[in-house]
């Protein structure tokens, strides 16, 4: 078809100068021209189709914000800013304040991240520097597979296996051990329930561990080998290479990965709901039951009677969305910067 298109009906170069040929004597039959136009239109249509699918992503994002804002409007109107700093949560008297949930969300996630980051970096160092080569791939792959296990599995394991064990074997002993140490005696006090903020953080820690170690390991692997070899050639020990060469080079990526994991932890519902205890109060002790935004919504939304109650829960969801947005955006900006630099190093 293409060949036919190029064949002109007139005889080319019939006595005219070469340069004018293409312009004057080259005509295309109507039918062929229509085919070209048609495919052009098809091309534009396809381009428009892919473009609108892209817009759909933006529409979903905007839709989430608009729908949640509309749903939260009655509660925002009723309580204003006091929703953010009031702790009472009473469906009977229609008094709602989100502080206990927000506090629980922040404390459990940040605690989980602080526990998971050192362990995750340890795993990454182990995988890139210490582990025998033949084991690196299998261990790395199993960690990545674990990152895909649904959070509800972590939740029921926490509820049925970890919490009873923790309650009977660790908690009483630990509370006694720190009973006379200032600060710690307040942080780890109270009757051993097994469930509570600390248990939730611990389960979250295990859950985000694969994320952190996978990201950190990938970032460690982007460190140019010549840099490490130079350090070894200077007589550095393995640890000195890790501490002075690998970690500074990988800093942004590690922080980005940790933020990504924090974003996951903040929004995590199922791993937390089972073991947090669902108590709307703020206790000093980490062993005391508490609640998080997602746990509150998961537990109460279907039973929420009354517009104000439901609206308050949606406002909590909106707050959660904002918090995770900020954290995830920060994580992305850091990881993007790293990607750019990695591209620069290779090119």
């Amino acid at each position: 078809m293409r060949n036919a298109l190029l064949k002109s009906d007139d005889q080319p170069n019939s006595g005219q100068p070469m340069a004018d040929m293409a312009l004057s004597n080259f005509t295309v039959p109507e039918q062929k021209l229509a085919a070209v136009k048609r495919s052009g239109a098809g091309d534009r249509r396809f381009r428009w189709l892919t473009w609108s699918a892209c817009m759909l992503v933006l529409v979903i994002f905007a839709g989430v914000m608009i729908a949640l804002s509309l749903g939260a409007a009655p509660a925002i109107k009723q309580y204003g800013l006091s929703f953010l700093y009031r702790e009472d949560w009473n469906p009977v008297t229609d008094k709602f304040g989100g502080l206990a949930s927000i506090y629980g969300t922040m404390v459990s996630s940040v605690l989980a991240m602080f526990m998971a980051v050192p362990v995750g970096i340890g795993i990454a160092i182990f995988l890139t520097e210490i582990c025998p080569r033949s084991l690196r791939r299998p261990i790395g792959i199993s960690i990545e597979l674990l990152a895909g296990i649904p959070s509800i599995v972590y939740g029921i394991w926490g509820l049925f296996t970890f919490a009873p064990f923790f309650q009977q074997n660790v908690q009483p002993w630990f509370v006694d051990a720190v009973a006379n140490i200032p600060i710690l005696q307040d942080l780890f006090a109270g009757p051993p329930y097994g469930i509570g903020i600390f248990t939730a953080s611990f389960i979250l820690m295990i859950m985000i561990l694969p994320f952190i170690s996978a990201v950190t390991r990938d970032v460690f692997n982007t460190v140019p080998v010549t840099l490490k070899e130079s350090a070894y050639a200077m007589g550095c020990t393995t640890w000195e290479v890790v501490w002075h060469v690998v970690l500074p080079f990988a800093r942004t990526g590690v922080v980005g990965g940790a933020m990504l994991a924090l974003g996951r932890a903040l929004g995590e519902t199922m791993a937390v709901t089972f073991v947090i205890g669902n108590a709307h109060r703020i206790a000093t002790s980490l062993f005391a039951p508490g609640t998080t935004i997602s746990a509150t919504i998961a537990n109460e939304f279907t039973e929420a009677v009354g517009d104000l109650y439901r609206s308050s829960l949606i406002e909590l969801g909106l707050i959660l969305f904002f918090i995770t947005f900020v954290v995830l955006a920060a994580a992305q900006i850091m990881l993007r910067a790293l990607e750019k630099r990695a591209g620069g190093v290779q090119g």
Partner: peptide, 25 residues
């Protein structure tokens, strides 16, 4: 660039928020 950014946010956004969104919608 904008779509990639928003898409990656949606990728790790809390799934319970998606539930609330569909409930409202």
């Amino acid at each position: 660039f904008f779509v990639r950014f928003v898409n990656d946010i949606l990728l790790s956004a809390p799934s319970i928020v998606v539930g609330l969104f569909i409930y409202e919608l």
